[in-house]
Write a protein that binds this DNA or RNA. Sequence first.
RNA 1: GGGCGUUUAGCUCAGUGGCAGAGCGUUCCGUUCACAUCGGAAAGGCCAUAGGUUCAAAUCCUAUAACGCCCACCA
Length: 723
Amino acid sequence: MDNLNSQYDPKITEEKIYAFWTKKGFFDPDKIKPRPKKNFSIVLPPPNITGSLHMGHALNSVIQDILVRYYRMNGYHTVWLPGTDHGGISAESVVGKKLHKEGINKFELGREKFLEKVWEWREEYGNKILAQLKKIGASCDWSRTAFTMDPGYIKAIDKAFIHFHEKGWVYRAERVVNWCPRCKTSLSDLELEHSEEKSSLWHIKYPLLGDEKKFVVVATTRPETMLGDSAVAVNPKDIRYKDLVGKNLVLPIANRVIPIVADSLVDLEFGTGAVKVTPAHDLTDAEIGRRHNLPVIKVINENARMADDVAVAYRGLKAAEARQMIVEELTAAGLIEKIEPYVHQVPKCYRCNSTIELIPSKQWFVKMEDLSKTAIKAVRSNKVRFHPKRWEKVFFDWQRNTRDWCVSRQLWWGERLPVWFCQKEPDNYVVSAREPKKCPFCKKCAMERSTDVFDTWFSSALWPFASFGWPKAAKDLDNFFPTSVLSTARDIINLWVARMIFCSLELTGKIPFSDVIIHATVLTKDGRRMSKSLGTGIDPLLLIDKYGADGMRFGLAWQITESQDLHFNEDNMLAGKKFCNKLWNASRFALMQLQGAKAREYSADTEPAAAAKDTRLILKKLKKIEKSVSKKIESYAFGAAAKELYEFFWHDFCDIYIEKAKVAIRDAKSPKEADNLRASLIYVLANSLKLLHPFIPFITEEIYSIIPVKNKKPLIVENWPKI
RNA sequence: GGGCGUUUAGCUCAGUGGCAGAGCGUUCCGUUCACAUCGGAAAGGCCAUAGGUUCAAAUCCUAUAACGCCCACCA
C-alpha cells in the first residue's frame, strides 16, 4: 500500500526533484506550452564573482522563488534570470591578494596577465553562489545566465556611456575625490564606510601678517594638511573676525601668505569659528576654494604619503608621520594653543577598509541633475513602488541632493571607458565604442583607449535590460522587460536601485521594474550583523544539511515581516523541518485511507459534493486561505502567508479534520459516503500542496507526484487553485 | 547634527481600535500507532516609561528612555 516511506529524506528527494525540474526545462518559460499570455519576470541581483552564499542571499532567494513559483502556477510566462557581476574593485582586490600570497606582484605581472588571472578566478569560483542557489531550490532559468562582462553586455555599457556623453552629461575634471591608497582608485561616496575613531582637535595659531603678535586660531583634525592651506575662512556673520576678513596670515612652517576669507559654509559654533582651507584635501574646502579662487595645493599623494610639492623634510612621509613632526615643530614655535580629544567618523574603503584620502584627481563624471529628477519622478508617481514604502524616503533624501557620479576607476578589471586619447595632445579625446581609424586632432597617431575602467555600479545599473540583450533588439527584451519585481537589500537602494531606475528610463524609456522589495537584514541572535569576517556568518548550506532546503526555506519565510531586522534563530528552521515532517505523515495517512477502496483518481479542481458538516467546514476554510494566501503573496506578506498555511494545515486539517475523517471513513454507512470522504481528503491535501509549493517546493512536488489526482501535471507547473 | 526602525511570554518574534498570540523552551499526562520531528493539558506577559484621544488602546497622538541602522561638507 504505502507509497511513501515512513521517513522523509530531504537530501535524496531534493536532489532528485531539482534534477527532474531541470531536465524537464520547467524553469525556461519558452519550453512551457502553450505559451502563456501574461509575463512575470525577475532579475536576480547579480552576486559578484568573489561572493559566497550567506543568509541574506538565502532570504532574498526564498522571496524571489516564492514569487516566481506563484506566478508560474498562475499561468504567467515567468522567468527568473540569474547571473553574476564582475565586481570590479572587490574581484581585483581578492585576486590581487591571492597572487600576493603566491609571491606575485600585480604591477610586475602587468595588466594583461593580471586580467587573465581574474578570468581564471571567474571560471573557477565565479558561479559559486549560483550553484549554491540551486540547493535552495531557486527556479532560475539557467539557460539565460548573464554576466556583466559578457561580450553583449559590455556593448551595453559603452552604449550607455556614449548616450550620456551625447546628452552632454559626461565631463572630465580634476576634482577632489575619495581615494583608496591601497586599491589605488577613486571611489564614490556610496562606496565608503565610516568608522568612529578617537583623535584630537589641534588648535593652531596662524600669525597675522604685519602684526605677528596677533593670531587667528584654527581648529583641525589633520595638522599635516596645513602645508596645503590656501586661506583661512570665517563666517561672514561672525563678529569676532569681522575686522580681519581681507587681511592676510602667515602660514606657519610653509611660510606662505594666505588670506582670510568670509564664507557662509563655515560654522560659527564649531572650534574657533575659523577654519583652515585646504582645497586639495577636503570637499568643503574645495568648494570654498572655488568660490574664492584659491589655489589647489596637493600635499598628499595617491599613496597617502606627503607629495612632492611640500618641503623636502616631509616628502614621502606617511601622513601620520608628517602630522607628528608638524605638531612637534608647531609646539616648539609656541603655535599650538591647545589639543582637545575628539571623536570623529573616518571614511574607509568598503572593500579593503583602508582609510580614504581626499585628493584631487582627474576623473570622469556623469551629471546627476536630470537623471535624479527622472528617478524621483518615477517613484513619486508610483510607477516604481517600494515595499515597505518607508524606504522611498531613503531614496528621495539621497536623490534630492546627489553629487555628480564619478564613473571612472583606476582599476584593470572592468570595461574600459570608450574614450580614445590623442597621443600627441593627450587632453584631446574622442568618445566612441570603436577605435577611431584616424586621430581627428593630430591626424597621425594611433589613438589610445583610456586605461580607466567603469565603476562596477555603472554596469550593474543596466542589469534589468542589458541582461535581456539590450541594446540589441531581442525577443526577451520585448517579453520580459520591464521586469515585475526587484528584491534586494536596503544598503544598495541608492548605490544600485536608484541607478537602475534612471538608467533604464533614460536609455530605454521604460521603468526597470514596478515593485521594489527591500527585505530585512539578517542579523545574529544578539543583533550583530552577519558577516564572515566577524565570524558571525552562518552558511545556509549548513542549515540545508540539517533541516533540508524546504525546512530552511519555511523557517526563513515565516519570519518575513515588514520590520527592519531579522534576528536569526535556528529554532525557526527546526519548526520548518517539523512542519515538513507533519506534511509527509499527513499525506501518508491520507493514502492509507484509500486502502480497501477501489483504486481511482480524485479531482483537485472540483470540490467534492460534501454532505458531512466537518467536510463542509474544512472546504470552507480551504477556500478562505486560498484567497488570503494569494493576496498575501501578491502583497509580499510572505511571513503572514506562511503562518496562515502552517496554522491551517497543522490544526484545521491534521488535528481536527483528519482525526474526524479517520473515524468517519471507518464508520461510513455506505461505500459512497466513504468515497466522498476520501475525495475530500485528497482534495484538501492536493490543494494544500499547491498553496505550499512556493514555500516548500521539493517535498510538495514529491508528495503530489504520488497522490492519485486526476489530470495532474508536475506541481511546479500545476494550476494554482482558482479563487 | 538629521532621519528611520525596534522595545509584547525564559528565547526568537506575530499581532494597527474590541477577551493578549505562535514557534522553541519549561511542567504534567499520553505510545492498541499517519506523525514522539507526535497528541492532550498547563504554567508563564503592568504589551519599555509617562501623559493624552476614545465607550474601548499593545494598537492612534505627544513626550521620554534604551538598543540598532542609515545619512551628513562641524574642519
